[in-house]
Design a protein around this nucleic acid. Structure first.
Length: 437
RNA sequence: CGGGGUGUAGCGCAGUCUGGUAGCGCGCUAGUUUUGGGAACUAGAGGCCCCCGGUUCGAAUCCGGGCUCCCCGACCA
């Protein structure tokens, strides 16, 4: 992609409304534009990252056996009256009336609707277990949106819902999502710690929040210092195996959110306890029959008895992750994208656009990288080099490939790693091999 | 929802106290010179000074009301 034909409105100065680093960098790197408090447009660069994150989430949900659906953003109020939440949810729910005076709402979550889908089509124990998810925009009319996309009113969320015959089955479904979440966040270069959490208004008795540690986190969290070095760490776990041992292993290491942490009864010694700020990027719940019972989501058992299914729900804040990853990975100059979510794998900098040799060499590199599935963002602007380096550092692509007349004379280009800052002079072939290998 | 701020060019800001018809930097456009880590010069374009009402010969500026966005707190499946 050539920068002169792309839409990348970068800013040199910090917009005054942005206080935290991820919000500032997202605005300055031309990723988003705010439209109202907590409501954002996603510009091409931001949209690419959002889609990359969404795709990782999708792949890991699919791998764990969940099936993707797509439910609407607008829901009828009647479903919510069945569960009782139409009255309970409060001002955060955006309520709408259509032209026929029907009560509608912009969905803040989808337990009711997915339960409706399940109860319509699933009648037998043979129909479970099943796990359905979607990745859809939600709206919660927060009193005080803040921190850019980290706490917006409109946000993109992956929400999955599991249905099982009994509590034991529901726990197996819960464990699958527990492992899938760890895999998902590790693929994005994040250290996510599962913490025992309050179930809140959704109810139920088993819940974990997945938290990344960051100074700008919204709340205080507590964990065993061993968590700083551990996790799933690439273990390839089969979803067909019994996941309870790994669940026990990981949840056996202390980690708790503010609401669940009791300093007086902390099970680990003070010197092993880490107290930090945390950002919640995922939350999983087991809540049993809370929705299936009032909404009549029943299945027949092998004995012909009718029982309400046991449900769980599992959320990942997809748009919040964009900000969360930046909070976890940036420096003075700008964003430092992990390769797995970067909007482009490499930035190609032509130090002297307009020079025949530089143009030809850059175009050739662009074509070869694109053919190898590593389409670069090619800065072909006819400008001084300094601004190009600054912009490239700001948008944070993992690699910078620098083509200039001086190097070409010796048959070399420069390859810089954004994260480490290491720079190498390589032949064109070696640079290509390193980037595509 | 309580408290505190804010709104002037795309972005960052001055001007408001003390009323006289709007300015600076960045960015943008054109030209020239440049070019290896955020270029220089020259010439330009760009404003419902948040909105409504009031005071005044005259309002970005004073008064009243509303709205927006931001911060702290409470809240947050």
């Amino acid at each position: 992609m050539r920068l002169t034909r792309y839409f990348l409105p970068t800013l040199k100065e910090n917009p005054s409304e942005a206080q935290i680093v991820s919000h500032r960098l997202m605005l300055r790197a031309g990723m988003i534009k705010q439209q109202a408090a907590g409501i954002y447009s996603w510009l091409p660069m931001g949209h690419r990252v959002l889609k990359n994150i969404e795709q990782i989430v999708r792949e890991e949900q699919d791998r764990a056996g969940a099936h993707e659906v797509l439910m609407p953003t607008i829901q009828p109020a009647d479903l919510w009256r069945e569960s009782g939440r139409y009255d309970d949810y409060g001002q955060e729910m955006l309520r709408i009336t259509d032209r026929h005076e029907r009560d509608m709402l912009y969905g803040p979550t989808n337990e009711e609707m997915i339960t409706d889908i399940f109860r319509t089509h699933c009648k037998s124990y043979r129909d479970v277990p099943v796990n359905l998810y979607h990745i859809q925009w939600k709206f919660r009319d927060e009193v005080r949106p803040r921190f850019g996309v980290m706490r917006g009113r409109e946000f993109l969320m992956k929400d999955a819902y599991s249905f099982d015959l009994d509590a034991a089955g529901a726990k197996r479904s819960y464990n699958k999502m527990f492992v899938a979440y760890l895999r998902t966040f590790e693929r994005m270069g994040l250290k996510a710690i599962p913490m025992k959490a309050d179930t809140g208004p959704i109810g139920g008795d088993l819940s974990h929040e997945f938290i990344i540690l960051a100074d700008t986190g919204e709340s205080e969290v507590f964990c065993d210092k061993r968590w700083l070095e551990m996790g799933l760490t690439g273990r390839n776990v089969s979803y067909d195996s019994d996941l309870e041992p790994i669940f026990q292993e990981l949840t056996g290491i202390y980690a708790a959110t503010d609401e669940m942490h009791d300093p007086a009864n902390c099970p680990i010694p003070a010197e092993d306890l880490v107290t930090r700020r945390g950002i919640e990027i995922g939350h999983i719940f087991y809540f049993g029959e809370k929705y299936s019972k009032p909404m009549g989501a029943m299945v027949s058992t092998p004995d012909g008895e009718q029982v309400p299914v046991h449900m769980g729900s599992y959320g990942i804040g997809v748009s919040r992750l964009v900000g969360g990853i930046i909070e976890a990975s940036h420096d003075e100059a700008g964003i430092v994208w992990p390769e797995s979510v970067a909007p482009f794998p490499v930035g190609l900098i032509n130090l002297r656009s307009g020079d025949a040799d530089c143009d030809a060499a850059s175009a050739d590199l662009e074509a070869k990288l694109t053919a190898a599935g590593k389409e670069p963002l090619y800065d072909d602007r006819d400008e001084r080099a300094g601004g190009k380096f600054a912009d490239m550092d700001l948008i944070g692509l993992p690699w910078q490939l620098i083509v200039g007349p001086r190097g070409l004379k010796n048959g070399v280009v420069e390859l810089k790693n954004r994260a480490s800052g290491e720079r190498d002079e390589l032949s064109i072939e070696s640079a290509l091999a390193k980037l595509t290998g």
